[in-house]
């Protein structure tokens, strides 16, 4: 048993073929995502370093780190305070759009053009809702007086970090929505079908799940901790 595994590994790496049995495009996407992990890590570590240098949350100290329940409690069209309700909705939208992306990839494997269009379409809508919600949240917070320099809820560093990091993530989501829309059109006009495979959807799927995963960390940093 072990011997066969070993000899397979040897053959896999002996040239003339892809050792992972994966096309170059997908390998590139994987390495790009690993690399992008490091740019997010750089930002999140900066967040951690700056946050730890500030006084922890303390009702009595207006310069201490703010309480997320206090900062994020608005929901569009509703009055009153609903701590973290809206961001929960955003998070579910994004996770749901990851699920629809998985379905789009599956339909691609089955060479079902209509199925790809349907599920990819839902993914795009999910992404748009997320970006739109973020726009709402930003404008609401700006309205409340939070900017990249100031923060009525506590330590001013919170504002800069929040806008920078959620902005960087939102930028990734927007790029993903654009790429998905492009792939939607390509599918619509049958370009992938003629190519004989929907690998492009798979690659975009990897990117989309990654953006989703990163959100979990961003969410953790700003809304939960």
């Amino acid at each position: 048993m072990e011997a066969t595994v070993q000899s397979n590994a040897r053959e896999l790496w002996s040239g003339g073929d892809s050792p992972f049995k994966v096309s170059y495009g997908k390998i590139m996407m994987w390495y790009f995502l690993i690399s992008d992990t490091f740019s997010f890590a750089g930002l999140l570590i900066s967040y951690g370093a700056i946050r730890l240098s500030q006084p922890a949350h303390d009702e009595a100290n207006p310069l201490s780190w703010p309480d997320p329940n206090h900062v994020f409690n608005a929901v569009p069209f509703l009055h009153g305070h609903y701590p973290l309700v809206f961001v929960t909705f955003m998070t579910f939208t994004l996770i749901f759009s990851s699920v629809t992306m998985v379905r789009a990839v599956q339909e691609g494997h089955a060479m079902n053009r209509k199925g790809v269009l349907f599920w990819l379409g839902l993914t795009i809508i999910g992404g748009l809702i997320f970006v739109g919600s973020q726009a709402f949240e930003w404008s609401h917070l700006i309205h409340e007086g939070m900017t990249q320099k100031s923060n009525p809820f506590g330590a001013s560093a919170f504002g800069g970090l929040f806008f920078l990091i959620t902005g960087f993530h939102g930028f990734h989501v927007s790029v993903g929505v654009m790429l998905n829309s492009w792939a939607f059109l390509m599918t619509f006009f049958g370009a992938f079908h003629r190519r004989g495979h929907y690998e492009m959807i798979e690659k975009l799927g990897l990117y989309w799940h990654f953006v989703d995963l990163v959100w979990v960390f961003v969410f953790l940093a700003f809304y939960l901790l």
């Binding site: 690399s35 992008d36 992990t37 490091f38 740019s39 997010f40 890590a41 750089g42 930002l43 900066s46 700056i50 990249q148 320099k149 001013s156 560093a157 800069g160 970090l161 920078l164 960087f168």
Partner: peptide
């Protein structure tokens, strides 16, 4: 290099948007 990217973006913000990272 991506970490330099993050460092650079933070510096650009400090320079141009008045943040204090």
């Amino acid at each position: 290099f991506p970490v330099l990217l993050s460092a650079g973006v933070l510096l650009l913000f400090d320079r141009n948007l008045g943040t204090s990272f």
